Amino acid sequence: MSVVPESLPVAAVPARRALYWCLDGLRLWWRAPFRLFVLCALQLLVETILQLIPWIGVALSKLVVPVLLMGILLGLDERARGGHLRWSCLLDGMCRRELWPVLALAAMWGLGVFAVQQAVAWLVYGWPAVDAVLLGHAMAHRELMTLTFMRVLLLPGVLVSILLLLAPCLLLFDGQSPWRSITGSVRMVLRHASPFGVLLLIDLALFLLMLSTGWTMLVMLPFVVPWSMASTYVVWRDLRSVVPTPVVAD
């Protein structure tokens, strides 16, 4: 694990750096394309299964899935340093010696993004949006099961996700506390507002394209998630000026 002092100065980066992040994220994904694709697909499957649990399933998925995503980030770090992207990395976030910080960040990260999404949907659609999404009674509100409702529900989370993008890396690789990871991510994003603004526009464009039809969402989501995970690791490594150290083979 690479640890960089929090006081390390980070030079401002231009807006065009966002394009580098996107392309380098694709390059990192290409170093283990099938395995990263399957790991992210498994994460999506776990999320879908958990959300089938009445009453608490959706909220539970927002706690468990970030932990799985942190495991994938740990696997990407190992792969970037010359190791392998292990299948077992999906559970690495749960197997850390100090699990509570991981769970605390997962709650603030996953539930925080979801809370913003649910709040916007409630403001637009009222209580039925809460009943359909949070409590899992979607079949009782079939009139909400439209692409317009999905856009209103999901798009507000894109901005929050950008602000919190670096939080898991700051916890896992920089050793910061959950709260300092959250605040540190927000500070770094605002400090480099130009490239992150471009990244936000790219993410919004992808989401709008993905939500243009039901089929595009089903087809694009399994590809967008691996790219997003790889790009997240690339952004942290670039802004922290961390040069991956080789993994010593056993």
Rank of each mutant, 00 (worst) to 15 (best):
Thr213Phe: 08
Phe34Ile: 11
Val38Met: 15
Arg151Thr: 06
Pro195Gln: 08
Gly112His: 00
Phe223Ser: 07
Leu52Tyr: 09
Arg237Ile: 05
Met220Arg: 00
Pro128Leu: 09
Leu208Asp: 11
Ser231Gly: 10
Val102Asn: 14
Trp109Arg: 00
Ile72Asp: 08
Leu105Val: 03
Ala106Asn: 03
Leu76Arg: 01
Gly214Met: 09
Leu200Gly: 10
Leu23Trp: 11
Tyr233Asp: 01
Leu85Phe: 00
Gly214Glu: 08
Arg97Cys: 07
Leu155Lys: 01
Lys62Leu: 03
Cys169His: 02
Glu47Asn: 12
Leu218His: 15
Thr183Glu: 09
Glu98Thr: 14
Leu26Asn: 06
Gly112Asn: 02
Cys22His: 13
Thr216Glu: 10
Met94Tyr: 15
Gln117Ser: 12
Leu221Glu: 13
Arg237Gln: 12
Val152His: 11
Pro101Cys: 13
Arg35Pro: 00
Leu190Phe: 14
Leu42Gln: 05
Pro178Gln: 06
Phe37Ser: 09
Val248Lys: 11
Ala205Thr: 13
Leu190Thr: 14
Val4Arg: 05
Cys95Lys: 15
Glu47Gly: 10
Val219Pro: 06
Leu204Cys: 13
Gly71Lys: 06
Gly112Lys: 00
Leu50Ile: 08
Ala106Leu: 04
Trp55Phe: 08
Leu28Asp: 07
Val3Ile: 15
Ala41Cys: 06
Cys89Asn: 09
Glu78Asn: 12
Gly126Tyr: 05
Phe207Lys: 12
Val243Lys: 01
Phe37Tyr: 15
Phe196Leu: 14
Gln118Val: 05
Pro226Gly: 03
Ala59Leu: 10
Leu26Thr: 10
Ala249Arg: 15
Ile182Thr: 11
Pro168Glu: 02
Met188Pro: 01
Ile162Asp: 01
Trp21Gly: 00
Val225Trp: 12
Met229Ile: 05
Arg17Tyr: 04
Leu28Arg: 05
Gly93Trp: 11
Pro101Leu: 14
Leu200Cys: 12
Ile162Phe: 01
Met145Ser: 12
Arg17Trp: 04
Leu123Ala: 15
Leu201Thr: 05
Leu90Pro: 01
Trp122His: 09
Thr232Trp: 11
Ala59Cys: 10
Thr216Trp: 12
Val124Cys: 10
Phe114Trp: 08
Leu36Ala: 00
Glu47Leu: 07
Arg142Thr: 04
Arg142Pro: 04
Phe223Glu: 07
Leu73Glu: 03
Ala80Pro: 04
Val38Glu: 03
Val152Glu: 09
Trp179Phe: 12
Trp215Ala: 13
Ile72Ala: 10
Ala230Ile: 01
Leu19Ser: 13
Ala59Met: 10
Arg27Met: 02
Trp100Asp: 11
Ser61Ala: 14
Phe37Asn: 07
Leu208Met: 13
Leu166Thr: 00
His192Phe: 09
Arg142His: 05
Leu50Lys: 12
Gly75Met: 04
Met139Ser: 14
Ala12Tyr: 12
Met1Glu: 11
Leu42Pro: 02
Leu8His: 14
Val235Cys: 07
Met108Ile: 03
Arg142Met: 03
Glu6His: 14
Arg237Tyr: 03
Ser212Trp: 15
Val102Lys: 12
Ala107Val: 10
Val186Ser: 06
Leu166Cys: 02
Asp174Thr: 00
Met108Gly: 10
Glu78His: 12
Trp227Val: 02
Met210Pro: 02
Tyr125His: 14
Leu123Arg: 09
Glu6Asp: 13
Leu144Val: 04
Ala106Met: 05
Gly25His: 01
Val3Asp: 11
